[in-house]
Amino acid sequence: MLARRIIPCLDVRDGRVVKGVRFRDHEDVGDIVDLARRYAQEGADELVFYDIAASARGRTVEPEWVSAVARELDIPFCVAGGIRSVDDARARLFAGADKISVNTPALEDPVIINRLAAEFGSQCVVLGVDSRVIEGAWRVHQYTGDPDKTVVGHRRTLDWIVEAVDRGAGEVVLNCMDQDGVRDGYDIEQLQAARAVCTTPLIASGGAGQKEHFKSVFELAKVDGALAASVFHKGVIEIGQLKAWLGGEGIRVRP
């Protein structure tokens, strides 16, 4: 069976990697290619590059850095942020990205998921979902890259996951916003609920702070991968040590 994936997420803004807490106060944490190389060497199974401002500002990610990353990396990577059309997706995939992830544009026009899956295959199409509890239910948020433009969507998170997978999404990254950047552990309850309805690979995002959090989310929510950012960028957790520890705890990981 497949190894559980450890996935550092690099939030990109203006060609640099940044990280904020709960989507605010972004600080510069390094050069894109330098960090990508470091994480691949440490044993990351995959990387996600998320242009956090692209959706909110209505501009797209630059294929130049996608290509620079693709030349350097020998593991798969996904590019997210501002992909609004088949052409936007093609530019990133042909620059060397293995997958593209859509979030806000899919909420605005869900048919884009069908178009992307038909053109490139579901294996290339990742659905990003930013979710939090609103009025007693998990609901989807839009425009999370820019706090000035955040609007509340009313879609229920689980319904949206089912619809998107039905439209052809080949993987779901569920970012539990209430946990994002606070390192208090993944939202196991929400991820379990998502796991029960999601028939594609499911990636947990938001809340990783200690190595035990990774073990819990794999064991309890049975996700295929766990994504994290600040704990890796700040050196709180080293990926090689994390994977060795998880392996010792009986979680199947790539050595």
């Binding site: 497949l2 594609t200 690979p201």
Partner: peptide, 14 residues
């Protein structure tokens, strides 16, 4: 699809 897995196979395998 395996009983405890998804379709397609996507990820690292031995």
């Amino acid at each position: 699809a395996p009983e405890d897995g998804v379709w397609p196979q996507m990820g690292w395998n031995a």
